[in-house]
Design a protein around this nucleic acid. Structure first.
Lengths: 218, 218
DNA sequence: TGTACATCAGTGAACGCGCGTTCACTGATGTAC
DNA sequence: TGTACATCAGTGAACGCGCGTTCACTGATGTAC
């Protein structure tokens, strides 16, 4: 608020236009996927000439990187807000699915087919690990959770030996394993659902997802 | 063999060139992803002019569809061959991972980010269900497998009621559930690994994958 | 075996398009005295 | 309050590029008698 008061009208206008450019970019991505994003098309849709956009973004790559950053930021905030409201792992699972269904192409911009040669800047990978930390918090074993079976213990000891991620996070190997399973399993069910691989099979993807959540939280 | 004897030299040559075009197409996809595939670039790489390719494929879309078909066909054959050699579910899991690692972009062409508006022709979805049937065969419960827990039974009853896929396959609800979990969980771990989301975390993706396989096969 | 014709692969020119991006310029908005 | 200057948004023309695709044509290969 105090920072906003310092904003000049020109800065406000700039920020608004940047936001509108991104808005149109998301619409294009939703309609044709990320590869179909075109600066000229965005400009035309906004009723201005193509070169005008270069006042707001250095080039196409910078715009896409910014969209990826926003997507990560949005997901991280959504997850953390849910966690702060007392959501458990299952709750976070529902939050994740709702966020993905809200804009599938946005989800795929993060977790979809990688573009060969593209490497996200460091601040984006930092947001990604923020998400992981939120999962780790929620994955801390509760009193009710059962101890891991013998076979599962193998992955846990592996994680205990090799983890150099989750930096200073005081997560137990059990929590690490649960967080990883949460991530990979839900992503598996979710991405196949969003890509339409379940259509025509006659079952409810939500049911499959619920089932995985039950497994995850015992 | 007898069919091959009927082939004229011209037909042989045609088939060879079609195959080489696809070969170069796969190289391009490996290098820049499917959106970067260009007929002209393929022609140039083969030392011929762009229009020449239209003797072999009606247009770009037909080539891509053909690649998708070949990818599905290849995976289905690989899975079925492994199953015919006596591989169990865990063996099929290893087969799947090896096939995906062999050419990640080929895997993503099938299971990656969907292109909005694209619908695969019927014969391709038929191959997809061939794969599912192979999984169902391998997912039949053995004597050693434990009965499903109470929570899991919910998905099974749901599948028993609503399944209109797997047509005439005599799979039990338990086998359906196992096959689905096989598919979604392994895809989850695999696609995140291939997309590089585990890099820098310091654990071995193969270990995570093995762990999921152990869960799947009890 | 030789000639006449049909088939087919591949070429080069061309079309129209949309892309990202640069540049010199106009006109409006804000700032300093 | 009024004038002089600086800042900045946006335009239109232009560049070079690569794309998919068509078309008329040449030349080689196969087929029929």
């Amino acid at each position: 608020m105090t920072a906003a008061a310092k904003e000049t009208p020109r800065e406000r206008y700039r920020a608004q236009l940047r936001a509108e450019i991104k808005e149109r970019a998301w619409e294009q991505i939703a309609a044709a996927g990320a590869p179909g994003l075109s600066l000229n098309a965005i400009a035309k849709q906004m009723g201005m000439s193509g070169p005008a956009l270069y006042r707001y973004f250095a080039n196409r790559d910078e715009l896409i990187t910014e969209l990826i950053r926003d997507a990560y930021r949005g997901l991280a905030d959504t997850i953390r807000t849910a966690a702060a409201s007392g959501a458990d792992l299952a709750g976070l699972g529902h939050t994740l699915r709702a966020w993905a269904l809200d804009d599938p192409q946005r989800y795929f911009l993060i977790y979809g087919t990688p573009v060969p040669g593209y490497h996200a800047p460091d601040d984006i990978t930092a947001i990604a690990s923020e998400i992981m930390h939120a999962l780790l918090d929620a994955a801390q074993p509760t009193a009710a959770s059962t101890p891991p079976a013998a076979e599962v213990a193998r992955l846990e000891s592996h994680l205990a030996e090799h983890r150099q991620w989750a930096g200073d996070h005081p997560a137990s190997p059990t929590a690490l394993r649960r967080a990883l399973h949460f991530w990979t399993r839900l992503h598996g069910a979710l991405s196949l659902e969003l890509a339409g691989h379940f259509t025509g099979m006659g079952f409810d993807p939500a049911e499959l997802y619920e089932n995985e959540l039950r497994h995850l939280t015992q």
